[in-house]
Simulated assay, not measured.
Amino acid sequence: MGVQVRLRDDNPPYGGRMYVELLWVGVGYQVDPRFYLGIGYAHTWLHPVDQPDYQENRPYIEAVLTHEAVGG
């Protein structure tokens, strides 16, 4: 489960104004040490400037492949 808040930007007149709130929950499976599969649900509250606030509901899937970088 996760929660995230995003601010519009750092510049006036909207600096520091909340723009997006995300709440998500998901489950996943580590296929091997480098590959992860997950599925979940996200609920999003959006607060655009000069427009009405609205909400979105989204299912999501994710696949994460990691690879160790080589130093140089």
Rank of each mutant, 00 (worst) to 15 (best):
Q51N: 12
V27E: 00
W24K: 11
G71F: 09
G38S: 07
Y19L: 13
N11M: 09
G16T: 06
Q51L: 07
P59A: 04
V20G: 07
Q4A: 15
T66S: 03
V27I: 09
P59I: 10
V25A: 02
E21A: 13
P13S: 07
P59K: 02
P48W: 07
D10I: 07
Y19K: 14
Q51V: 12
G71N: 08
A42N: 09
L22P: 02
G2R: 13
M1W: 04
A69W: 12
H67C: 08
R8A: 07
G28A: 13
L23G: 11
G72Q: 04
V25C: 01
V27Q: 03
N57V: 06
E68D: 08
G38K: 04
M18Y: 08
L7T: 02
D50T: 07
G15V: 01
G15T: 00
V25I: 08
Q51D: 08
N57K: 01
T66Y: 06
G2N: 14
V20H: 14
H43C: 00
P48F: 05
T66H: 03
Q30T: 00
L7A: 10
Q4V: 07
P52S: 13
Y29F: 10
D53G: 03
L65Q: 01
D50L: 13
Y41L: 13
V70Q: 07
G28D: 09
L65P: 04
V3Y: 14
V70G: 04
A42Q: 06
V25T: 10
H43V: 02
Y14Q: 08
G71M: 06
P33C: 04
T66W: 01
Y41H: 02
M1D: 10
E62T: 09
Y54V: 03
E56M: 06
H47M: 03
D10T: 14
P33I: 00
E56R: 06
W45Q: 09
D50N: 15
E21M: 13
R34M: 11
H43R: 09
R58D: 05
P52T: 11
Q30M: 05
E56Q: 12
G16M: 13
L65K: 05
V25E: 01
E56A: 07
P48Q: 12
T44Q: 08
L46K: 10
D50M: 14
R6P: 08
Y14R: 01
E62H: 12
A63S: 02
V27W: 01
H43K: 10
L23F: 15
G16I: 11
G2E: 15
D50V: 12
W24T: 11
V20S: 13
Y60D: 00
Y36F: 05
P33D: 02
D10N: 14
P52F: 12
G26D: 03
L7W: 08
I61N: 10
V25S: 06
